[in-house]
Design a protein around this nucleic acid. Structure first.
Lengths: 202, 202
DNA sequence: GAATAAACAGAACGATCGGTCTATTGTACC
DNA sequence: GGTACAATAGACCGATCGTTCTGTTTATTC
């Protein structure tokens, strides 16, 4: 399963897809830079689409692992751990090689929601939502599921914006927003906001 | 400048680029659906890239105009006008034909920041930031420029997420976040005068 | 009605794409 | 040492791409 040639292909393909896009990166480019024969690619992945899906799955695992790492490294307090994710974003965005979120690019390049790349991107998005949601649940914040979705949305906005402006500023902005959001969510548990009272939710 | 054939090309190309992507949409598809000869396209736009840039510029104008419309239609209060944008997003996302923000797709498909589509997308992003920033300035909120960027980032996250989940939920979440953000910004700037605002003196 | 220009249909071009096929080389295992 | 398998290089295929070129038709203007 994990042959060295296969890993090399995944690594090179991921880099090229990230920096130059899926459609514009030809099979031959990947093969040349990986130093691998064409048939090796087709034996391992079946097609270019197969390679793309494999790259996305691999990238999702890496990304989630890195986020978990950022979470663990920052603090034992779930509240701080959420903010730690955006700190990690700041470091990520500062990398001159940063070129945005691969899954956003995949969705953009494969607009059909039924396509495999789009499905892989959706799966990844759910993982991120879950991660944020679980942290909020651990922080005993109310409606952790919605909170998780909101945080994931802020993260998406940050990645998307960072790609355009090429600075770490979006990460800092996202962190500020997340901080306000968490603070507010925390205070709701003790002192409900007027809107919720008016809506009869309390 | 504004020949009917040219307009027809822009209209069809925009629809196809939106729904199927820039690279996957061939020139011949555009020509066939627009009922226009090939040379007409090249006389008007010079190349496919020229057509893409023209489509993006036209789409930016339309988008900004629609946002301004949503702002004007909602209220005369800048605070409410900001939220009106996200209400408009809700309607937009509910459209079954909604397929995300064209400029995010353009950036994804043309990763080179120096490419013309990327530049057009960046220009558009600045216009949106400015629009939010001006609304915040009119609302006399402190640091309206940063606030504008944050709101634009939230908007980007909402559009990006809405494309994946295909519901209007991200618009509602974004509105909630914007509301909290504005409230917080307002209370910082006018903390001493909060009572007066509540009393309707401002 | 003649002249000018724009738009037309469509063949053709060179390039590139994803994918297949062939024939050869290296390598591990019994 | 022979067998089996993986990987190699590279020719080759059909399709599609963006673009150019040719010749004809339509519409506008003097």
């Amino acid at each position: 399963m994990a042959s060295p040639k296969r890993e090399k292909l995944l690594e090179v393909a991921r880099r090229l897809f990230e920096t130059e896009g899926f459609h514009t990166t030809g099979i031959d480019r990947v093969l040349a830079e990986a130093g691998v024969a064409k048939m090796t690619l087709y034996n391992n992945f079946g097609s270019k689409d197969g390679l793309i899906v494999a790259v996305l799955e691999s990238a999702s695992n890496d990304m989630v692992a890195r986020l978990q790492e950022a979470v663990m490294a920052s603090s034992s307090d779930p509240y701080e751990q959420v903010l730690g994710v955006f700190d990690a974003f700041g470091i990520w965005f500062s990398d001159p090689n940063f070129c945005g979120c691969m899954f956003q690019a995949a969705v953009a390049e494969y607009p059909d929601p039924q396509s495999q790349p789009a499905k892989a991107a959706r799966t990844h998005q759910l993982r991120v939502c879950d991660m944020f949601g679980q942290l909020c649940a651990q922080a005993e914040l109310p409606d952790s599921e919605s909170l998780g979705k909101m945080l994931a949305m802020i993260a998406s906005g940050a990645m998307c914006t960072a790609r355009q402006v090429q600075t770490r500023e979006p990460a800092d902005h996202a962190r500020q927003i997340a901080e306000i959001l968490l603070e507010r969510a925390g205070s709701i548990g003790f002192a409900p906001a007027e809107a919720e009272i008016a809506n009869g939710l309390v």
